[in-house]
Each structure stands twice: as C-alpha cells, then as structure tokens.
Nucleic acid binder design. Structure first.
Lengths: 144, 144
DNA sequence: CTGGATCCGACATGATACTG
DNA sequence: CAGTATCATGTCGGATCCAG
C-alpha cells in the first residue's frame, strides 16, 4: 500500500493520564488516532461510499457506477481502508464471475448519522458561506 | 492564491429542482459547495484553528504557538480561507508592532459545536477502530 | 468482474528568505 | 509581529496494464 497507511501509530489518548485531554488539546495530539481517523472519515470518497452504503449492499461495480467520478483505483483503496477500520464489511462470493458485496458494519452505521449532521450544517450554511466569499472577494478585488 | 480556490463554482443544490436532492445524492453533486465546504471544514489545520478559537481571541503568533506543528505559511493560508468563508473574523490594529487578532464569527461558532460531535464520535470509537485494524492486519499478514 | 501493481503528473505543504 | 514570495518535495490521485 502506498498511501493512507500509518507507519507510526504512536497511540495516544486511549491510555492517557488525563491531563492532556484538555478540551483544546484533542486535536493537538498529532500522532493521535483522532486526527488520523478524522482525516479518513472526512475523506472525499469515504464520505460518498458511506453515504451510498447506508442500509444497502452494493457490488464494486455498482458503487463505481453510482459514484461515477471515482477511479477504480481510489474506490479500491477507499474500500480497503474502510474495511480495515471496521466501518465496511466486504463479502466475497466464490463464484465464477467474482461477486463482491460491500455493506456498512454497525460501527459504520453510527458514523453515517454523525456525518449526516455535519453535512446538514454544511447544507444549511452554504448560502452564508457563499455570500461571505463573495463579499470577501469583492473587498480584495477592490483593494487590488 | 495557489490552492483551495474553487475555479468552477457551478453552484448546485441551492437552486435545485428538488429531484436530485435524494438522501443518497447530497454528496454525488461533485461541483457542489457541500463537497468543497466539507473538505475545508474537515481540513487538519482548519479544525485546529476553529477549536482553539472557540470563545477566544488570539493573535497570529499565539495561534502559531498553540498549534505548534503548523508552518507559518499554512496558518496564514488556513486563516485566510476561514476568513473568506466567514467563519473567522480578522481584526488588524494599526499600531507600530502589527497586532492582528482572530476570533470565530457566530457562524464559526455553530460550526464548532458540529465539529465537536464528529470528534466525539471519533474519540468514542477509536478503540473499536484500532481493534478492527489490528484484526485486519493480522488477517492480511497471515495470508501473506 | 474485481482488483493488484506501476508509472507519473498535479497539487498541497513545508522550509526558507524577504518585507512593511 | 505578521505576513508574502519562492523553491523544493512528498503525497495523492488517475491512467494503464496485468491477473485470478
């Protein structure tokens, strides 16, 4: 594997003394799992896969078709990561034309709802953000 | 600006017919703001900055010190993006030693709480994920 | 059909040096 | 202090070819 792999786990928080769990430090713990998991979860393709797999079982090709923008390589990589993290279950049917199905694990299911709330925030405020950007760009453009 | 800039806005969802707003399609809309905003919000440094700025006003150097792992360049870029998106407010005091302070906007505040829930999920399940990874790696290593 | 392995270009990020 | 500009580089992602 060339990417997304963690070489130095350096697990943290899990067995921490409790003093470095400050509300402002949850993210400062760089080598920590949190930071890494967050990156994976927030990943473009991961998000799509998790969303599409909600209460469904899909085959590789089906996923590829639905997502469309994804390359076969990234879909494979993404699915492997999600499988490794225990968020997605991969089932291989030993038949002549290989048939592999993917589905969310219970853990993956809980993540799905959490993600939805983040997406909900985004959808709810994209108008404000767009407006803010326009205003900002105008300000900058004016001074330039 | 060299990065993070959106060349083809191709705004979507905001003014959509309503048929492509399927629960499974919120993320398929690639050119959509949602996808882009999500990337920004989930960004490593953005997350840190937003967390640190919660109910505080910090100077550039202060932020840099607290985050520590960040390069001065990325901090600048990140702050600019957040400012442009209306999530962070930048205040410049025209004094001899330049004094610039950053703080969350109300919008940024709402985002903060949303992010916290995502982080909460991550913290709550990092143990399960770690276990899943170990199991997976063992499985793979065994077959290899 | 479902991927594994490679090659490679694009882009994000970090380090460094310079400025108001 | 608070950046901007430039250069170097590592990583990610896409395209391709190959295999079970």
């Amino acid at each position: 594997m060339e990417e997304g792999t963690l070489e130095s786990p350096s697990k943290c928080a899990v067995t921490m003394d409790g003093e470095d769990t400050d509300p402002f430090q949850w993210d400062t713990r760089e080598g920590c799992q949190v930071r890494q998991i967050l990156d994976r979860v927030a990943d473009k393709w991961s998000l799509l896969v998790i969303a599409l797999l909600d209460n469904r079982r899909l085959r590789f090709t089906e996923l590829r078709r639905e997502i469309d923008g994804v390359s076969q390589r990234m879909l494979t990589v993404t699915l492997r990561q999600l499988e490794r993290d225990g968020l997605v279950k991969r089932t291989v049917h030993p038949v002549v034309p290989p048939r592999v199905e993917y589905e969310l694990t219970p853990l993956g299911g809980t993540l799905h709802s959490t993600i939805r709330s983040l997406v909900a925030w985004t959808e709810a405020h994209q108008g404000e953000i767009a407006a803010a950007r326009e205003a900002y760009d105008e300000r900058v453009g004016a001074s330039a």
